[in-house]
Nucleic acid binder design. Structure first.
Lengths: 151, 151
DNA sequence: GTATAAAGTTAAGCCAGCTTAACTAAAAAG
DNA sequence: CTTTTTAGTTAAGCTGGCTTAACTTTATAC
């Protein structure tokens, strides 16, 4: 087996295991906090964007502007989002997370983190350092890639 | 920084990057094939269970039995699931994926796989082997853990 | 400065997925 | 062999998220 085949195999196996897990966990978490997937996705996007407008959200989530507007509305009412006027363009709105909203997303990330954490709990010191190094490599690669996509 | 701290840091960073990505991709994929999240989750569960009953699904997805029954119904009509009578207990139904259903889930896994794949594309040979080894370790750990949970 | 385009909202209506209630049929318990 | 429990379905009704259509307000083009 060549190195490339080896890697492809590892990737495939890993995706197979995690695709199951992560969806399940995510969906349970979202349900447990009483939000819908749509609402959660939206909050997630704002979390990573830090700040964005309605049209950005609608584009990103592949829904119409009214749908985005309404979703934001409910999340503002729920105290998760803040919607303010863009000072540079008074037509536009700036949507940002409130403290409460940010906490929620961070809790969800932490919940996912715990699963991975429990996995490495049983590993030897050597295995841990290999995993640690690999994750560092992958994270960097992901960030590099993100930059390119953002153009 | 100790090894443990190092690992924790790597884990946290990685989760931060992937939690964004994977949800987004998943949601886009599901939308693109014209299914709902609920339907997709259900298919996913059947895929990993190989075969299961309505009550199992309802329990697993945390919805009522009628809801599960109805979801299954639509997916049977869509040609994704097969619903047969359990020979050992004629009250129960055995729900399994059709060929078409299995293909769909495999395509979704493959779609996620492609993202990871594109990440490792730019890595050096040394980095690749580290990543490959780490994924192997993690996959094993996940499988071990799964066994325990299943008791 | 008028016309056009863009950002967002409001309103009306549709559909999917969920729930509860009421039911059928088969198995398990007594 | 009757009673109770279990597995699943059907029906009615609610809600949430989505869409299109119509509108307001601000920015951009000519």
């Amino acid at each position: 087996m060549t190195d490339t085949q080896q890697l492809n195999h590892s990737l495939r196996q890993w995706m197979d295991v995690t695709s199951h897990r992560s969806m399940q966990d995510q969906s349970r978490f979202v349900k447990s906090i009483g939000f819908s997937m749509a609402q959660f996705f939206l909050l997630m996007h704002v979390y990573y964007k830090k700040q964005c407008g309605i049209s950005n959200l609608s584009e990103h989530m592949e829904i119409t502007a009214p749908a985005a507007s309404q979703l934001v509305d409910k999340l503002v009412q729920a105290g998760m989002l803040e919607r303010t006027e863009d000072p540079h363009d008074r037509r536009a709105k700036q949507v940002t997370l409130t403290h409460k909203g940010r906490q929620l997303i961070e809790r969800s990330i932490h919940a996912r983190f715990r699963w991975l954490d429990s996995l490495v709990q049983g590993l030897s010191a050597g295995e841990r350092s290999t995993v640690s190094e690999a994750l560092r490599i992958l994270t960097n690669a992901a960030e590099e890639r993100e930059k390119k996509v953002d153009k």
